[in-house]
Design a protein around this nucleic acid. Structure first.
Lengths: 248, 248
DNA sequence: TTGAGAGTAATAATCATATAATATGTTCGC
DNA sequence: GCGAACATATTATATGATTATTACTCTCAA
């Protein structure tokens, strides 16, 4: 529930992690080599301690590797830990591509229907209340920029939590990040009413303990989103993705 | 393909990360508070730089958080990044629980059938050859301790790679870790022949491009494994899990 | 030309120490 | 009681020196 209390920017190290993480995923160091510790420190005006600690954190996320004499280098993209919330966030926010969003949604298409089935089998009244609360907020939300999105996210993460499976629950921050970007697509194209109806069907099935129906309903929901994303990917510009700010 | 060339233990920092990671997941600091930097340094005979860098890596994995004056502390287990290969490895190797293995397998039950379906739709001849090679090695393997396991793992990860989806491919190290532990169960109880038949069915369906059949076959495979694990969890000792070393 | 081996040097890894920033109590004035 | 000033513990940052590792170069022999 509570946001992380760790100060991400009032702290040189975390700030540097953010900067470097974004630079790395945007391919800043594809051509030129990654700088040495000394250069990095000079370029960012940080001490070597801070620089080294930031590099170590990025190493832990699979983005960098360091060896004496060879220096520090960006690891091949295949080794990046895409399932790390920070890495996914940097990619989606700083190097957005419909392709990547489609791939992630493709994984959601496997995960979330299964989560809905588990939730239907296991959710206790309290967990169901959380899911219902998300939907209620979706319905109550006006056309404000934030609330409809956060309510939708709350709905999905409440279902993940209701599975009672720690690995599903762990996907919360990833889905959170991806949905914040993804929802703009689906809402713009499908009407709000249709979206809410789909979510309501999921909740209804879970509350009724009908695993099969819950899975199918969730599958339909995400399948729709995936199709929209894939269509946009193949036909860029036609969906209004580019002139998004105006639609309100 | 190639193993990571980063020296995990010829390096004080990585060694400390390993030690602390294992201590944390085993609940070593549940009662007592996590030591201060100074204490940690003294206890492990490392300088503060090394200690801090290790702590930073564990922070990046969600296991620790540090604040001035308050000290460093273990984060609530719900914030641990279970999808980080190191974290999952520490948990399964140092604090093994059938419950956790069951939860992971439950997630595999959502992921891998979907991966098999995608592979059936998209796999090119080369990718299929990799899958086939895994199965071939499974069949050829004797009763040696290692080869049957690594071959089985190669089969599963080849399918993940064949999806052409980076997020599925990213699950490789996780599945790798979990399978190395999980396979002992399934193989001990179900015969080798039955296991190979199941895998062959998956490969056959993928090679034929039959997504539905591939998904069902993979589902059956993992569903079997999950049932064995859950049975063992509810009835500890009865499956031979405890007297494993002798069976070989 | 090739290959092995020794030597060189660049770079991260480690250590040690000092100072700053930041929470958290605690005391004091009222 | 209550808020502001102050003390204190701990991480955060900075810096210089030393060590360990290993990529690269060069030599020399086959």
């Amino acid at each position: 529930m509570a946001l992380s209390k760790i100060p991400r920017d009032r702290n040189l190290t975390y700030g540097l992690v953010e900067s470097l993480g974004q630079l790395i995923v945007t391919g800043e160091f594809d051509a030129k080599a990654f700088p040495t510790e000394g250069e990095l420190s000079r370029q960012h005006g940080t001490s070597r301690s801070v620089t080294r600690e930031a590099v170590k954190m990025l190493t832990a996320k699979g983005l960098l590797q360091a060896r004496p004499r060879q220096g520090t280098s960006v690891t091949p993209e295949t080794q990046w830990n895409l399932l790390d919330p920070d890495v996914l966030r940097w990619l989606l926010e700083r190097k957005f591509s419909l392709r990547l969003l489609a791939e992630f949604t493709e994984m959601r298409l496997a995960i979330e229907p299964a989560a809905a089935r588990l939730a239907a089998r296991r959710a206790d009244p309290e967990a169901i209340a959380h899911i219902r609360d998300g939907l209620r907020r979706m319905i109550a939300a006006g056309v404000g920029d934030e609330e409809p999105v956060t309510a939708d996210i709350a709905f999905h993460t409440a279902i993940l939590a209701a599975t009672g499976n720690r690995f599903y629950a762990q996907l919360d921050p990833l889905i959170n990040t991806a949905l914040r970007i993804s929802i703009r697509f689906t809402n713009r194209i499908k009407g709000r009413a249709a979206g809410i109806a789909g979510h309501d069907e999921v909740l209804d099935a879970i509350a009724a303990g009908d695993a099969e129906r819950a899975g199918l309903a969730m599958h339909a929901l995400i399948s729709d989103a995936l199709q929209l994303i894939e269509a946009a990917a193949e036909n860029p510009g036609a969906t209004g993705a580019r002139r998004s700010r105006r639609a309100g």
